[in-house]
C-alpha cells in the first residue's frame, strides 16, 4: 500500500512539475492520470470497503489541493504575462506615435526645403560655376573684372535693389493689415518681388543667387547689405532699417555742425562743398571724436574709439609701406639709405579715418549690440520653428512661451492673451518679425 502511495505521490509531483512547464492542457492529463490511479486502487482494495473510502477521500483532498495550487500558479503566471504584454504594447504604441510624428515632421521639412530650394534658386551647378569663376578671379585679374561686371552686383546696385525691396515690403505690410491676411517673411517677399519684376523662373533664380553672393561678399564692408542679409535670415529686427537710417542722418548732421563750428567764416556753398568732400574722404581726429561722443555715451564711445584707433593704426602702417615702396622705386637700383628709411618710419601720421570706414564702425557697433540683445530670443525662436521658415504656428508659439520660465509662471491664460494680441485674426502664422515686435513692447 505504502509502495503504491509513494508511487502515486511521486507521479503527482512529477505531473505538477510538468504542468508548470507545459501549460493548461496538462491539467486535464493530470486529472485523467489521477482517476486511472484511483480506479487501480479501487480494484486492488475492493474487498475492504472502509479502506477504499478512506483512500478515496484522501485522494480527493490531495487532488483538490493540487488543482487549486496549479490553478493559482497558472493564474499568477498568466497575470504576469498579461502585464508584460501590456507593458510592451505601451512601449510599441509610444514608439509608433513617435515615429509617425517624426515622419510627419520630416514630410513638412522636406516640403519646405523643396519649396525653399526652388524659391531661392539654389542651383548647385550654377553655384559651382560661380565659385569656379571666383577662384579664377584670384589668379587672373583681367578675367575677374569681366566676371564681376557680368555676375557680381555692385554695392551701389545692391543698395538700390535692397531699397526697392524694402519699399515694396512696406506696401505689402500695409495691404496685409488692411485685408487681414497673413504676412510673409522678407525672404519670401524678395522672391515674389523678383517674380513680379522678371517673371521668368530662370531669371528670378539668377537674381536670387546673385543677391545671395553679393550679401556674402559685401557684408563685411557695407552695413546696409549686412543688415539686409540678417533680416533675410531672421536674425535681426526689421525696425533696425529705420534706426540705422536715422543714425546715419545724425552722423551727417553732426559732421555738418562740426564743419560750421570749425569754419564760421565760410559760406553755405563752401561748407556744403567741404561737407561733400568729407563724405568721400577722411575725417580728422577732432571731427570723428565730436561725432562719436555726440552720439554715444562716454563709456560706449571709449569702446568704439579703441576700434577706430586700431583701424587707423593699420591704415597708417599701410601708408608707411606705400611710402617706402615709392621711395624705392624713385631711387637708383631700388636702394634706400638708412636715414631715408628712419625718416619715413618715424613719421607721425595724423589720426584720420575715411568717412566710410568711420560710418561702418559706428553702424556695425549698433548691429552687434542689437544682435547680442536679441540672441536669447532668436535662439528660442529657431529652436521651436520646426520647419525653419521664420514662422511659428500656435502650438510652437505656446511651446516657446512655456520654455521661458517667467512667462510660464504667469500662467497659460497669459500666453493665450499674448497669442490673441499677436494674432488677433487667428491667421495662425506668427512671423518672426511680428512675435519680436510684441516681445519688445513695453
Amino acid at each position: 500500500m505504502k509502495f503504491f502511495l509513494k508511487i502515486f505521490i511521486t507521479n503527482i509531483e512529477y505531473i505538477k512539475d510538468k504542468t508548470e512547464e507545459i501549460g493548461n492542457e496538462i491539467i486535464n492529463n493530470i486529472s485523467q492520470t489521477i482517476n486511472n490511479i484511483l480506479h487501480l486502487f479501487i480494484k486492488l482494495f475492493e474487498k475492504n470497503n472502509n479502506f477504499q473510502s478512506i483512500i478515496r477521500k484522501q485522494l480527493e483532498i490531495v487532488l483538490n489541493y493540487l488543482k487549486e495550487d496549479i490553478e493559482r500558479e497558472f493564474s499568477n503566471k498568466i497575470e504576469k504575462i498579461k502585464k508584460e504584454l501590456n507593458k510592451n504594447l505601451k512601449v510599441y504604441n509610444d514608439e509608433k506615435e513617435f515615429y509617425s510624428n517624426k515622419i510627419e515632421r520630416l514630410e513638412i521639412e522636406n516640403k519646405y526645403m523643396t519649396e525653399h530650394l526652388i524659391k531661392s534658386g539654389f542651383n548647385i551647378s550654377k553655384k559651382f560655376e560661380i565659385l569656379n569663376k571666383e577662384n579664377e578671379n584670384k589668379t587672373n585679374k583681367k578675367n575677374s573684372i569681366e566676371f564681376i561686371k557680368t555676375k557680381l552686383i555692385s554695392i551701389k546696385n545692391m543698395k538700390e535693389i535692397i531699397n526697392e525691396i524694402y519699399n515694396s515690403k512696406i506696401e505689402y505690410d500695409k495691404k496685409c493689415i488692411e485685408n487681414k491676411i497673413p504676412n510673409i517673411t522678407m525672404e519670401l517677399h524678395m522672391f515674389n518681388f523678383f517674380s513680379k519684376k522678371y517673371g521668368l523662373k530662370n531669371l528670378v533664380n539668377e537674381w536670387i543667387i546673385n543677391i545671395d553672393m553679393a550679401i556674402k561678399i559685401y557684408s563685411n564692408e557695407d552695413n546696409d547689405i549686412n543688415l539686409f542679409g540678417k533680416i533675410l535670415r531672421n536674425e535681426i529686427d526689421e525696425n533696425e532699417i529705420t534706426f540705422l537710417n536715422k543714425l546715419k542722418n545724425s552722423i551727417n548732421e553732426y559732421l555738418q555742425l562740426c564743419l560750421i563750428n570749425k569754419y564760421p567764416l565760410k559760406s553755405k556753398k563752401e561748407l556744403n562743398k567741404l561737407y561733400l568732400n568729407k563724405l568721400e574722404n577722411y575725417l580728422n581726429e577732432d571731427e570723428w571724436k565730436i561725432i562719436l561722443y555726440s552720439i554715444y555715451s562716454k563709456e560706449e564711445g571709449k569702446i568704439i574709439e579703441r576700434r577706430i584707433l586700431k583701424i587707423i593704426k593699420e591704415l597708417n602702417n599701410n601708408r608707411k609701406k606705400e611710402l617706402l615702396n615709392d621711395l624705392k622705386n624713385s631711387c637708383k637700383k631700388n636702394i634706400v639709405t638708412r636715414d631715408e628709411y628712419d625718416k619715413i618710419n618715424s613719421n607721425k601720421f595724423d589720426l584720420i579715418i575715411p568717412y566710410k570706414e568711420f560710418l561702418y564702425i559706428i553702424m556695425d557697433y549698433r548691429i552687434c549690440y542689437k544682435e547680442k540683445y536679441l540672441k536669447p530670443f532668436i535662439y528660442l525662436f529657431k529652436k521651436y520653428d520646426s520647419d525653419i521658415n521664420g514662422i511659428l504656428n500656435e502650438e510652437e508659439f505656446i511651446k516657446l512661451c512655456d520654455s521661458i520660465s517667467f512667462i510660464k509662471k504667469l500662467g497659460h491664460s497669459y500666453i493665450i492673451q499674448l497669442l490673441n494680441k499677436i494674432d488677433p485674426y487667428i491667421l495662425k502664422e506668427l512671423l518672426f518679425q511680428i512675435v519680436l515686435k510684441y516681445f519688445q513692447m513695453k
Binding site: 536679441l374 536669447p376 504667469l410 510684441y438 519688445q440
Partner: peptide
C-alpha cells in the same frame, strides 16, 4: 510687457528685456 523689480522699484519692461536680464544673470551665475 511685464512688471519687474529693479533697484527695489517696480518697473514695466518688455518681455525681451526680461529675457535678456535673465540670460545675463544666468551667465553671471555660471
Amino acid at each position: 510687457m511685464i512688471e519687474d523689480i529693479n533697484n527695489d522699484q517696480q518697473v514695466t519692461i518688455s518681455l525681451l528685456d526680461k529675457l535678456c536680464i535673465d540670460e545675463i544673470n544666468n551667465e553671471n551665475k555660471e
